[in-house]
């Protein structure tokens, strides 16, 4: 899955000649938290956030240009990047959303090497993608299988055991604490009756993890 699959293409923007007040109104009206600032509609020059705007109290500043308070050269992501790149950037920088850009044409108003805005990707877009990848909203039963080792053979063993029972798999994720040998395979099975799959897994020597009910 790539950024272009999940980004919003119809981006709300403000021209760099707009005022801080106009930016604040746009953010309130369109219920957004980040507002890219552009020149000639699509050349990205900066970004303002609702937080930047909340810190402006001076009426003179409110009437002044938005370019005075925006962050210049914002961090952007390429539409062809894997979704993981956007996820990492949003997580590391604690951003709410990232402008998605491509290199501007050589005759760009901003000059060579500048960014043309093609979309925006937010935390919510990423969460929606994760929900889809994990199949959380699809009917099924979720099980967690302990993997004794991090080898592909162990994973194949799990898949073979499930395949024997002709159970449909909604999603499959491998994860585990970093630096540890043991991993878990999270599987969502499209059935009301996971017993056959669980029995087959146990027979193949795997352990099914159980929830600790004290924590619920």
């Amino acid at each position: 899955m790539f950024v272009s699959d999940r980004m919003t293409r119809d981006v709300v923007t403000i021209d760099e000649s707009g005022t801080v007040r106009e930016a604040a109104e746009l953010i309130a009206e369109r219920r957004i938290h980040q507002l890219p600032v552009v020149r000639e509609k699509q050349c990205l020059v900066g970004i303002v956030t609702d937080r930047d705007l909340r810190s402006v109290h001076d009426p003179e500043m409110m009437a002044g240009p938005v370019s005075a308070i925006m962050s210049r050269d914002p961090i952007t992501v390429w539409p062809g990047s894997p979704l993981e790149d956007a996820l990492l950037l949003l997580y590391r920088h604690r951003f709410g959303a990232l402008p998605v850009t491509v290199a501007a044409a050589p005759d760009c108003c901003l000059g060579k090497g500048m960014h043309r805005l093609v979309g925006i990707i937010s935390r919510t877009d990423i969460l929606a993608a994760l929900i889809e990848m994990l199949g959380i909203e699809e009917a099924g039963t979720r099980i967690e299988v302990e993997l004794p080792e991090q080898s592909a053979v162990a994973v194949v063993g799990v898949i073979n055991a499930v395949a024997q029972t002709q159970t449909r798999v909604v999603s499959l994720t491998l994860s585990g604490p970093r630096g540890r040998q043991s991993r878990r395979l999270y599987i969502r099975l499209s059935t009301i009756d996971p017993r056959r799959a669980i029995d087959a897994l146990r027979e193949a020597g795997y352990t099914i993890a159980h929830p600790s009910c004290d924590l619920i």
Binding site: E138, A139, G140, R142, R188, I192, P194, P211, I216
Partner: peptide
């Protein structure tokens, strides 16, 4: 039974 642990997940 809680949807996190049991079919259908709703």
């Amino acid at each position: 039974e809680h949807p996190s642990f049991c079919y259908p997940g709703t």
